[in-house]
Computed example of a mutant assay.
Amino acid sequence: MMRKLFVLLCALTAFMGAHAAAQPVVSPGDVNAAGELRMLSQRLAKSYVQLGLDVVPAAALEQLQDSIVRFERNLERMQALAAAVPPAAPAIERLRGDWAALRAAVAEPADRARALLASRRSLDVLESAERLVIVLEVAADSGGARRVIQAGRLRMLSQRVVKAYMLYSWGADTAASRSEMESAADEFGRSLTTLAALPGNTADMRAELSEIALQWEWLRTALSVEGAGSYRLVVAEAADSILAATDRLVRLHQNVESR
């Protein structure tokens, strides 16, 4: 009897070890957290520019502070992955350095020169975060992770396009700011079309995609109005609405991937 129990326990231990080994090191939540770093880099810079323009400054300050807290929390989560995913370590180290530079850039009150510096630093952070996302996507080895990343990119673009719009409306390096705004807007539109065409979208996903499309049309209209400083508030509010909807979409894909 004892021998049978011993054999059973050994078999169970072996099964549990094999099952644990089969579990991916990188979870859908890890992929989402890394992708969110991209968005937070642009949200932080956008909020900083809004403060400089005095566009709903109380909300902008709250968003800036929230972005810092969330970025550092997610960065610590990435650091915890470094041992399990060695290729991620260099990307995380670079990200830390770029993040420190961005934090320093937004430490003083915003004027046009500092706003431009913050935007450039935010793009460095964005590039480093993209590299990390690519590494984690490979480690996750899952088609579902790709969907989380694709949907998460909409979050970032919603903030990047408005950051560039705010800079452009402020007269801060207008040619470059306009180019960034138009490029981000074009990518947002293409990405939204691609996501809507993916097979396997659930009813909830389709509902969120429809909401995003409606909000996006409203935002595109506001972006196209030349020289209307009063539209800054409209653009800021539309960006917040799109960010909320895109975040819900990301979490829907994450939940499907986690099953």
Rank of each mutant, 00 (worst) to 15 (best):
R155H: 03
Y168P: 13
I134G: 03
S41Q: 02
L116H: 09
V234Y: 13
R77V: 14
D240I: 11
L157A: 08
E108F: 07
A245F: 09
L195K: 00
G227V: 13
S169G: 04
D54R: 13
A21T: 03
R73F: 02
G200F: 11
V55I: 02
L64Y: 05
L81A: 11
A33Y: 01
D204S: 05
R121Y: 00
V135D: 12
L123S: 12
S142N: 10
L117W: 05
S224T: 03
V161F: 09
A34R: 02
L233D: 14
R232G: 13
E137L: 13
V85P: 04
G144H: 11
L44E: 08
Q215H: 13
R3Y: 09
A83Y: 02
R178P: 04
L123G: 04
V235C: 00
V161N: 03
P90L: 00
V235G: 01
M205V: 06
A151Q: 09
A89T: 01
W218P: 08
A11Q: 14
K163N: 02
A184F: 10
A89V: 06
A89I: 06
R131I: 00
A105Y: 04
P57R: 15
G200C: 12
V31C: 10
L53M: 10
V55F: 00
R146Q: 15
A18C: 13
A140Y: 00
L5C: 09
S119E: 03
Q215L: 12
L243D: 14
A139G: 01
D204Y: 12
V225D: 02
R114T: 14
A238L: 10
V125R: 07
V162S: 15
S230D: 10
A60G: 10
A82C: 08
A196F: 08
A22S: 10
A45L: 02
G227W: 05
M16W: 14
E237Y: 03
E130L: 07
R121S: 11
M156T: 05
E187V: 10
T221F: 14
S230V: 15
S128M: 00
F188Q: 04
F6Q: 15
V133R: 04
R3N: 00
S241M: 06
V161A: 07
A104K: 02
L154C: 01
G17R: 00
M181I: 11
Y231C: 08
V133K: 02
G200H: 04
L154F: 08
R146G: 14
W99G: 02
P28F: 04
